[in-house]
Each structure stands twice: as C-alpha cells, then as structure tokens.
Amino acid sequence: MIGNPQLSPEGTLKHLLTIEGLPSSVLFHILDTAVTFENVAQQEVKKVPHLQGKSVFNLFFEASTRTRTTFEIAAKRLSADVINLNVSASSQSKGETLLDTVDNLSAMQADMFVVRHAESGAAHLIANHVAPGIHVINAGDGCHAHPTQALLDMYTIRHFKHRFENLKVAIVGDVLHSRVARSQIHALTTLHVPEVRVVGPKTLMPRDVEHLGVRVFHDMTQGLKDVDVVIMLRLQNERMNGALLPSRDEYFKYYGLTPGKLSRAKQDAIVMHPGPMNRGVEIDSEVADGIQSVILKQVTFGIAVRMAVMSILASN
C-alpha cells in the first residue's frame, strides 16, 4: 500500500496533491502567506525573488486557460523560470507514458511540476515517482482534487467573511464529477465551517457523500436557506449524454442560480464560481454580474494563493 506522499514525517508540505488529510495549521499557513503576496501586483516591479533560479514546469495533460495562466503568473512573480507544456498535443500522442514524460522533464532539472490530468490519481503517481527535492502541485486530477482552487476559495471566503466558524456554505451542482467540490468540502470541514451543504439532483451526487461531513439537499430553495456563501459548480454539456440530466433548461429551472433562489440566502451572502461559467445553465447573468458575485475576485486571489503554495513548497 502506498502512503500519503504529500507530507514529510515532520508534517511539512512536500507536494500539494489533495486537501484531504492536511491539518488546519497547514491550510492557515498557506492563506496567511498568500496575504503577504496580495500586494505584489500593486508594486511597480511585480516580482519577489522567492523562486529565483528555480524551474517550474506547467504540465497540462488537459486543456485549461485560467488555472494554467494563474500558475504561470504566480511562478513568474516569484521570479521562477516557467516552462509551459501542453502535453496532450505532444508526447502523449506519440505514445510516451506519463512517467517517461516526467522523467525526461526531471532530467532537464525541473524543481516543481504543476500537473493537470484527466485521470484521478495522476498527481499522486507523479509525486511517488519523482526524485526527492522535486515538488508536485496538483492542478486538477480527474474527479479527485483541485487543491489550489479550494485554497483560493477559502481565501476569498475569509476575505469577505473574516472567519469560518460561524458560516453556512452551500455547494450547488455537479458534485459527482467535481474535483473542485471534493477539495472545497475537505477544506471547509478542516477549517471548522459548521455547516457545509451540497445541493443537486441525485444523478450528480456521489453515493455516501454524507461521509465527508456534508448535508445533502435536492431542493435548492431549501439548500440555500440562510447560507453565507453560495458556490456554484460548472455543469459540463456532456452530462446531457449519459442520461444524467434531461436538458439544460430543466437543470436551470431547478438548480440554476437566479436572483429569486439567491434571495433565500442571507442578505450579505457571496456568490462564487470556479469558472468557466455557463451563463443560463448553472447561473443567471444577473447573479453572475450582480453585487453579491465575487467570482472575479476569486481569480485575482488565485495568483496570491498559488504564489503562497509554490513559495512554501520551495522552502520546505
């Protein structure tokens, strides 16, 4: 049996693969470190030297714009050399295995891999394989985890709500296929949010999800009642194919976030979305662009949080 590869025996972070199993002290350390990077973008020279001389490889086996770009910006602001690889278009199509690709890049003196892959567990596989001293950040693996997204979401929540211990948070939509939701749930429960709700139809809800410490709602008006934070999840169009949902229209009717449904939440509730949004499918434009929406702030905070993760890993 393979052990948990992301923490050293002393409890320091070697890789960031999943939120599950990380103590709250590690999460708070990342959030607090991110605060110190928030102002870098406002400086005249938008750079700090933390990763000078280090090579960060953005290893994306699955398409991404936002995540890859924010990781690239974060690494560059830390003065790292950044190499972007869109692997789906190159070696994998030539038949090279995942670990061979990693070995080849390691031979080019990589210090850090930022990995996105369509299959759950890909980042763990790589972390178990690389030489000591090389750090792996999971930028999304299959339906499993997307830890930096969850961390930037926690950063956003703390920014607007200041603390976690008195919050009700609802995560709405396709929880079944969502690595973001899984990581958010672990982060919220680790940070002592007393009530985490998941809302969606049964076909998009993993069996036994209550074991993660969440309350399950199928009725969105009930699920949003009195919550402080509403997190909407992206609905992939292909979900209409596998008999999971009948249509986008029906989904929007029952699980799309409209001003009417949002009025069930607290007056000062914030609305979040990991992006990219499907307007008119999971969220009404009026809400997405409304005053309660903090969706674009999430993107901005994402850079500081990713800088924090990278600088902590590099210093460990």
Partner: peptide, 15 residues
C-alpha cells in the same frame, strides 16, 4: 466499488 473510497478519490464506481 461504489462506496466511500471511490467517492473520495473521484474514481468511476461499480455498484
């Protein structure tokens, strides 16, 4: 198996 582990790891389940 369609249980807790597959749910946590995001693996496609077999009930």
């Amino acid at each position: 198996h369609d249980g807790e582990v597959a749910m946590r790891l995001g693996l496609p389940p077999i009930p």
